[in-house]
Amino acid sequence: MGQPLILHRYINRQVFLTTVMVTFILVMVLVSGRFIKYLAEAAAGEIAADALFLVMAFRMPEFLQMIVPLSLYIGLLLVLGRMHMDNEMVVLQAGGQGHGRIVRSLIMPILMATTLVAMFSLYVTPRGDAEVNRIFEEQKDRSVLELLTPGRFHVKGSSNTQRATYAEQMNREKGVLENVFVADARFQARGEADRLLTVWAKSGKLVQEDGISYLLLTEGFQYQGKPGQSDYKEIGFQEARVRIGKERTDSRPPKVRGRPTPELIDERDSNRDAMAELQWRIALILTVPIMALAAIPLARVNPRQGRFYRLIPAVLGYMLYVGMLLVTRSAIEDHRDALPWYLHTGWVHLVAVVVVFLLYFGGRIFRRRRRA
């Protein structure tokens, strides 16, 4: 009884340490790329700097639910591959610890990883996505005064209209902009400027009235006209208001990724996006045990081959599995008619299970058929 417990502790400890190390590396790579993207948006004034780390914190469960299955998969490949390379598996089998005992010793880490991914996928990540969606909606309604970086042009608009705002300095304690420049341009279909309204003011301050944000400008001039023509109008003013925000409305409902799982279950028959998201969340959970079980036979290597002999093909197989799930998810979202019976992520899991079965018993079946 003591030997199996020692074996379980030994393998579980090695798998846990390796999985944590791989998870840390993958999280750093993924978070760094996403952080740079959000940092560029903050530098451009599209998102406030104080919301940057909050967004990253709410995104972390989404990162982990994608990384943990891959980390466990790679961790099993590395640990079991090393045991094969060092002939530890040969010693264990000679001592009566067969292949089935090795599989049973890995049940606990697989169940723990599956439970963690299930908790993230079904509960934590949707709430995090809803909060991220709320933060970005709030950022869209933030005033130019809150997002404006002194000494830089802040440009917002669409293909037809654009507004450029510039302030030389900002007194954040008083909430006052100094030497303010605002230019509104409307473009024709050919991209030529049709109307240009330019305003310069000595200072500006944010005011709100009836839920609408205005920039109260003082001691300035307004220039209006079409570029290339001499019909410019110059108007001096002591005070003027420039509308810079939309009327405040109730928060929008969260996107399908941020909706609770019970709501997706209720709408899965009438909403294709809800069906696709629900199947994706369940698919992430099933990925953990299927790929963990596949890693055990894939880790068998000959000492002459090296421990990384099957690592790259195994990772490519994992990417193919997840890629097929993503393709099926997109197909469900785009299919607006009656959903065909074959358009379901369950078929991808079934194929993966058959492949895992062949990895365990395919050689034995093939040998029996040759003998027959």
Rank of each mutant, 00 (worst) to 15 (best):
123 Y>S: 13
149 T>Y: 09
158 S>M: 12
46 E>L: 14
315 V>T: 07
364 R>W: 11
65 Q>G: 02
279 Q>E: 13
360 Y>N: 06
237 F>D: 14
113 A>Y: 03
242 V>W: 05
110 I>G: 12
267 E>Q: 11
280 W>T: 10
203 S>C: 05
324 M>N: 05
50 D>W: 05
70 L>P: 04
301 V>A: 01
218 T>Q: 15
325 L>A: 09
272 R>Y: 00
46 E>Q: 15
191 G>Y: 08
303 P>S: 05
329 R>L: 02
234 E>K: 04
264 L>Y: 06
77 L>F: 11
9 R>M: 09
361 F>M: 07
66 M>N: 12
199 V>D: 00
12 N>M: 13
259 R>N: 01
87 N>M: 08
133 N>I: 07
277 E>M: 11
352 A>P: 00
82 R>T: 13
314 A>V: 02
349 H>S: 01
99 H>E: 14
192 E>Q: 14
118 A>S: 04
231 D>L: 00
67 I>F: 04
90 V>K: 01
302 N>M: 02
94 A>Q: 02
110 I>N: 09
35 F>G: 01
201 A>Y: 11
249 T>I: 05
128 G>P: 04
270 S>W: 02
329 R>W: 00
103 V>P: 11
339 L>M: 14
64 L>G: 05
152 R>C: 01
274 A>P: 01
42 A>K: 10
204 G>D: 06
123 Y>F: 15
150 P>T: 04
365 I>E: 06
154 H>G: 07
56 M>G: 06
56 M>S: 08
211 G>M: 07
313 P>L: 09
294 A>Y: 04
189 A>H: 06
222 Q>S: 14
342 Y>Q: 12
19 T>F: 07
264 L>F: 07
301 V>I: 15
210 D>M: 09
332 I>P: 01
98 G>I: 10
355 V>P: 01
110 I>L: 11
63 F>A: 08
136 F>H: 07
131 E>A: 12
151 G>L: 04
37 K>M: 14
148 L>R: 00
45 G>S: 01
221 F>N: 06
120 F>A: 10
21 M>Q: 09
327 V>W: 03
74 I>Y: 09
31 V>T: 10
316 L>Q: 06
336 R>I: 07
370 R>Q: 14
239 E>G: 00
181 F>L: 15
306 G>F: 11
199 V>W: 00
212 I>V: 15
175 G>R: 09
103 V>E: 09
43 A>S: 13
320 L>I: 13
210 D>E: 15
